[in-house]
Design a protein around this nucleic acid. Structure first.
Length: 388
DNA sequence: GATCCACGGGAATACACGGATG
DNA sequence: CATCCGTGTATTCCCGTGGATC
């Protein structure tokens, strides 16, 4: 390869990476610090958490609502703020009718997509509550649990714990969680966050309060899209097309952002800084029905992401069956076939990829199934490469 | 030496089909 | 005709091993 070509390639790559960095605000997997658009939900949450501002713990609670409704956005933002604000009993103003013992409060947020196992869960908690490094190895789950207890008792502080993505396939089931909570001291109050109706889970039996949130209202979702796109796209066509995306997304901010992301990418590939109707149409096409949250995909263990990354680049013919895909991925990664195949089945099991059974007749044997990602490949590719 | 968990692999089971059997 | 059986593939389930780290 001559020097010219090498330089050209460098330049192209720089262009590309700069472009991708600009995309980041459009990522459906990241939350902004100030989700100003979820005022109602924020108020509901603050109502529930009100005792906190008097130095007391609120009762256990459950926040639920559909995908892309801003639950995680609000809860992570709120807990980040609360965590920075030490609630000091001395500054609390009492109504003097009753003297309750007050104590300082701590706040922690745990995402069960990432910290699923019992060990990982306690580890995340202890880690959040202490400045010291907590060993990941050579320490038993039991030891970790007692350490958490000691920590909580020693500090005398109450803990408000938010536990996100409860009951999603591949994360922690409500029953398991309730079990774990029962092992925690009474100075811990938790707020579970999930999608399922409380009546359909055991959580209803343990929580005093359920907070329900619905999908985004149309005009609010448009605002979300516009504000996130502000740095990336010029405004020429944005208003109308954002409205179109919002209509299609039906209140799901995740899918709407994903579509806007794909549309932006398509425009950028063509060297444009504004999106067209065709971009949006193509983008909507690229977001599958029942699209799985990209946050979930990026919470998967590294090697499962590697398998997915390879899978989405495969020739469609190489995705026609699990075995074929396994072989193709094994060629391109250093994972063993057995592992890849198991991963693919596991990914299908939690709904990250779909297995579509072939209807064509084969000579003999059980018919294979085609693998289809249940997320927009473009978005995954871009964000994955960004993390490299 | 202890611990968790990612990997790798293999055994058991399910499914589809054609052909044999009752 | 209904059922069973054999074969070949797909899928599920399970467990031992070893890496990394304390």
């Amino acid at each position: 390869m001559d020097i010219e070509a090498r330089i050209r390639r460098r330049q192209r790559r720089d262009d590309e990476s700069r472009l991708i960095e600009e995309y980041e605000p459009l990522s459906p997997a990241t939350h902004v610090e100030e989700p100003t658009d979820r005022g109602r939900l924020l108020e509901q949450l603050l109502d529930h958490l009100d005792p906190v501002f008097g130095g007391r713990l609120p009762p256990h609670g459950y926040l639920y609502g559909p995908k892309g409704a801003g639950k995680s956005a609000v809860v992570t933002a709120l807990f980040a703020k609360l965590d920075r604000r030490t609630i000091d009993p001395d500054t609390v103003i009492y109504t003097t009718t009753r003297v309750e013992p007050t104590r300082p409060l701590q706040f922690a947020y745990v995402d069960t997509r990432r910290y699923t196992s019992e060990f990982a869960f306690y580890h995340a908690l202890v880690d959040a509550l202490t400045d010291e490094r907590v060993p990941r190895h050579g320490i038993s789950t039991e030891t970790l649990r007692t350490r958490l207890h000691q920590q909580l008792e020693a500090s005398g502080a109450g803990l408000l714990l938010a536990v996100d993505h409860v009951g999603e396939p591949g994360s922690t089931a409500p029953e398991v969680l309730v079990d774990r909570f029962s092992a925690l001291p009474s100075s811990v109050s938790w707020l579970a966050v999930g999608r399922t109706e409380p009546e359909a889970t055991v959580l209803a039996d343990y929580t005093a309060a359920s907070i329900r949130t619905g999908p985004y209202r149309r005009h609010v979702l448009v605002e979300v899209l516009l504000s996130r796109a502000a740095t990336t796209l010029d405004r020429t066509t944005l208003d109308d097309l954002s409205a179109a995306i919002a209509d299609w997304a039906d209140g799901d901010a995740h899918d709407a952002l994903a579509a806007l992301f794909v549309a932006t990418d398509r425009a950028a590939q063509a060297g444009r800084t504004s999106i067209t109707e065709a971009d949006v149409e193509a983008a909507i096409e690229a977001v599958p029905d029942d699209c799985v949250s990209l946050g979930r995909v990026f919470a998967l263990p590294e090697n499962k992401q590697t398998v997915l990354r390879t899978l989405v680049d495969l020739d469609p013919a190489d995705r026609e069956s699990v075995s074929v895909a396994t072989a193709a991925i094994a060629d391109r990664t250093d994972l063993a076939e057995g592992t890849i195949k198991r991963y693919l089945y596991e990914l299908a099991d939690i709904g990250v990829v779909d297995r579509v059974q072939s209807v064509e007749r084969y000579e003999s044997g059980r018919p294979p199934s085609r693998l289809e990602p249940k997320f927009p490949p473009t978005v995954f590719r871009r964000l994955y490469n960004l993390n490299e």
